[in-house]
Design a binder for these strands. Sequence first.
RNA 1: GUCCCGUUCGUCUAGCCAGGCCUAGGACACAGGGUUUUCAUCCCUGCAACAGGGGUUCGAAUCCCCUACGGGACGCCA
Length: 457
Amino acid sequence: MTRVRFAPSPTGFFHIGSARTALFNWLYARHSGGSFILRIEDTDAARNTEQALTVLIDGMRWLGLDWDEGPESGGEYGPYFQSERRAIHDAYIDRLREVDRIYEKDGALWFRLEGERHTVYDDFRKKEVEKVRSAPIVIEDAVRGRVEKELDEDFVIVRASGDPVFHFVNVVDDITMGITHVIRGEDHLSNTPKHAALFDALGAPRPVFAHIPLILKSDGPGKMSKRDRGALIEEYQRRHFLPAAVRNYLCLLGWSPKDDREKMAPEELIERFDLDGINRGNARFDEQKLVHLNGAYLRELPLETYAWMARPVLHDAGIVDDETPEDDVQSVLEICRGKVNLLEDLPGYADYFFRDDYAFDSAAEKRVFKKGDPLADLERVYRTLEKLDDFSAESLERTFAGLAESAGVKPFAYFPVTRFAVSGRAGGPDFYAMLRVLGKERTLGRIRRVLKERKGS
RNA sequence: GUCCCGUUCGUCUAGCCAGGCCUAGGACACAGGGUUUUCAUCCCUGCAACAGGGGUUCGAAUCCCCUACGGGACGCCA
């Protein structure tokens, strides 16, 4: 039975790299029919708060990563908060003591390596250190293959304060929770020999290690840090990204299904995910591709779902409020669906349906008034629509066709200036649908206003 | 500084482990064109990469070595 875990430290942020680690673990568990365990490594009291935990759990839920064991789920290997596992850690300290691999120095407990000792001056750390000549530790990493590293220094496993350190508790918890596969970021690769040595010293079988590449910032050097745009899951939640899109994009960063498939449903992802599809090289974060995927997911949402998600976005942006008739919102959403890649762009895309003080885009204005006599066209449109009572799309289409024919032009000739007048921009939803939703009164009012302002100046 | 890992289009990647099927495939972005009488979608075309050098081989993106570059780790943080 495969048992994998995601073991975050609640810091108050849910980093995209952590999220991807969680996702890979989750996928692997689901793929292999094993268990996915959430273990909270909350031993650093200084930065651990209840709110930090909430951020993490909300983020996990939002991404759809459910855990079989952990906080709020329970399980037979608890507690799932590292801070509550102290008795277990102590017992394992005793075990190490029994096999004589522990000694005390400066009030702390050190793990003793086996091998010849000598002292050298470390000029990076500017001090004398005791080195140990020991056999290299060999890790068979599921992603990177054979990794060999020599451990040459004893290390602290219990601080002078009495608190055990990460390397130790992490290993003990993995042993006692029966973890079979440790899938984590490559930044832990250098630590792994220490962990392997502890597994060995404790007489426990090592788990399979799989170190996944890091996510690098979109520009500039280094890995994504919490201050970078797009680094936090909270940001995607706040910006109304679709979790399915974020999840899908994250899969593609550092893992490949080996063929040309990119947009994949969870079932397919689970079906196809495997450790040997994980890449070795670090991946650079690219928001554009995420946005594209988000748009693709948005476009295939049923209208009901789309409206259900989009409505609060318009609300939050202050575009609509409780006074706004539901039917109006619904009609606008119907014709705007699939037009933007991000729900957060919707308010800016559709605001003019709900207010008359919409902005006029100067680039659009230039284009519209570049040639011909757009004002004359607009006037003709006005006089024609004035006499039209049926503002259905079909009726509007017939009307514009008639208007165009009598002038010997294509109906399209009237679109840009009309659209500009009623919306202030060059793009938007389907032309006739837009006029239909705006309705006769508002359409005429807006055209009249533009006509008046333009003629006056 | 030491150690570990990596390096295919601007970006994510396929191909590498099992060398010839690679005049290196796909996607995002970008540029052109088409469909849509408009917007978006969609479709087509284009642009664009095996880090460099040595070696092994009849043959190397694929195997080996070196260099360069990138990333990470070196905490009584996790």
